[in-house]
């Protein structure tokens, strides 16, 4: 709510600030950093308090990005997560060099992130119920989808068919991995094809869009849930806001391409706060699981 005493000037300034926020990088992982500044409301939060609150700002409700491991800890029943295909790694098959060779970029990112690529997959229990679970991690090259993400999702779905499990995938992705050229586009086809098979086998798929879910990810598996969920305030789009602004040279409506906007336009079933997520998924799985 904008207070009526707020001057036009201050309001405009705040508007500008709001507009800039999506492009600011979160810096949470500085060692010894006890305090974190919420980059939506600007308040300082005690790091421990933020962790205890599932990395949601206690002041304004802003949902910070989660790593795949944090998500697994928050969501799955203690010790139930069993990873599959942990060792698939990207390859520089095009000899692609932008500011540095893709091969070198992979090695550096693996060393820095302790992840092998932008998704972690496995089976787990959520509220006592089994599921095949894929969780993207934005910190690995912006969660971009290349051959590894596509292959791991396809294998996860094939495993779910074999074990008759529902599939849950958390998307967090800037889109296709351009360093893999056309092969990144083909992963959209591959993941969507696998989801077609899952559906033919009568198994449910729950897609969860987190900030951000864009481009090749939104235009494939992230929008294909029998049930589509999103965390609040997530950017979910086909083309990013800057691309659209450049194309149409026109101001974008407030809240455009955020979860709540997509809910209004019929693209999502539920915008679910993080603290409700486990309970919501448990209920949904319970509905599907009734024999």
């Amino acid at each position: 709510m904008i207070s009526s005493t707020l001057s036009i000037h201050a309001w405009f300034k705040r508007k500008q600030k709001e507009k800039e926020t999506p492009y600011v990088r979160e810096r949470l992982d500085i060692p010894g950093n006890l305090w974190v500044k919420c980059y939506k409301c600007g308040q300082a939060i005690f790091n421990k308090e933020l962790e205890d609150n599932l990395k949601v700002c206690p002041k304004c409700g802003y949902h910070f990005k989660l790593s795949a491991n944090e998500r697994i800890k928050q969501l799955t029943d203690n010790g139930s997560f069993k990873e599959i295909d942990p060792n698939i790694q990207s390859k520089d098959f095009l000899n692609f060099t932008d500011s540095k060779p893709y091969g070198k970029r992979i090695i550096e990112t693996v060393a820095k992130s302790l992840l092998k690529d932008a998704i972690v997959c496995g089976t787990a229990k959520i509220g006592g119920q089994g599921a095949a679970l894929g969780i993207m991690d934005f910190s690995f090259m912006g969660g971009s989808m290349g051959s590894v993400v596509g292959e791991k999702i396809a294998r996860l779905i094939e495993l779910a068919i074999e074990k008759k499990l529902p599939v849950i995938i958390f998307a967090a992705s800037g889109g296709a991995r351009m360093q893999e050229g056309i092969m990144s586009l083909m992963q959209m086809a591959k993941t969507s094809a696998a989801l077609g098979r899952l559906r033919e086998n009568g198994l449910p798929y729950i897609a969860i869009c987190t900030d951000p879910t864009t481009g090749g990810t939104s235009a494939s598996f992230a929008m294909l849930g029998d049930i589509n969920l999103a965390e609040p305030g997530a950017l979910i789009c086909f083309a990013g806001p800057r691309v659209i602004e450049q194309t149409i040279r026109q101001k974008l409506p407030p809240g455009f391409q955020r979860s709540e906007y997509l809910l209004q336009h019929g693209m999502l079933d539920i915008v679910c706060e993080r603290k409700q997520l486990k309970e919501t998924l448990t209920k949904i799985l319970g509905w599907f699981n009734e024999k």
Binding site: S192, A193, F238, F256, H265, M267
Partner: peptide
């Protein structure tokens, strides 16, 4: 890439075609 295209679900429309084409 436009406002209406996003509002009417450009991503969903393409994603759905990808899935259905394989069937």
């Amino acid at each position: 890439c436009g406002i209406g295209a996003e509002e009417r679900g450009q991503a969903e429309a393409i994603a759905k075609n990808l899935r259905e084409m394989t069937e």
